[in-house]
Amino acid sequence: VESASEAGPCEEKVQAASDATQNNLFPEFPTKDINRRVALGSSVAAVGLFLSSRLDFGVSLKDLSAAAMPYEQALANGKPTLVEFYADWCEVCRELAPDVYKVEQQYMDRVNFVMLNVDNTKWEQELDEFGVEGIPHFAFLDRNGNEEGNVVGRLPKQYLLENVDALARGETSIPHSRIVGQFSSSESRKVHGVVDPRSHD
């Protein structure tokens, strides 16, 4: 008698009895267990939320640079300009971002806001021109593009507000200049060379 033709590689070699007794994977769970799970889950969620509350809520550098104006456009439209040199890895820049954003929102129509990333080789000319040695570096330019002053590093929001206000009113000098707070050195910029077009790492 010809036996049945071949089946696939996962064919069972030996006759196996049909497996009658099955263990229930999800037995009746007692309410105690549900309670335990709920308690565990909520404590874990609480821990997670606690940890997250120590993170930065609010504006990120990405949001700031998305709201900023292109540099050439800012120099050409006859309004004073605030130029911030920043980098993605700069902690202080990240901390100051919410303050800068608020000031920006307030003076948007009178003063241009420009964000220049120091890792980008496009702004090397400006880095050289403005003598940027630490970031965040805020350069205050009048309506003709001339530098009225600069501030480097962490500065109180009040100083920033007063400087921008002075720019907006068209004054020739800003009240707080040449102030150096906590900053990151611009030497540690991460210049990415041009990637090979075929590289897919």
């Binding site: 874990v44 969620a45 821990v47 997670g48 939320l49 940890l51 809520f57 609010g58 990120s60 949001d63």
Partner: peptide
């Protein structure tokens, strides 16, 4: 911004659960 915060929270939660298990 909210999405990166959310991602951070979820990472912490999953790590906690994994540690417990």
């Amino acid at each position: 911004m909210i999405f990166s915060t959310l991602e951070h929270i979820l990472t912490h939660i999953s790590f906690s659960i994994v540690s417990i298990v």
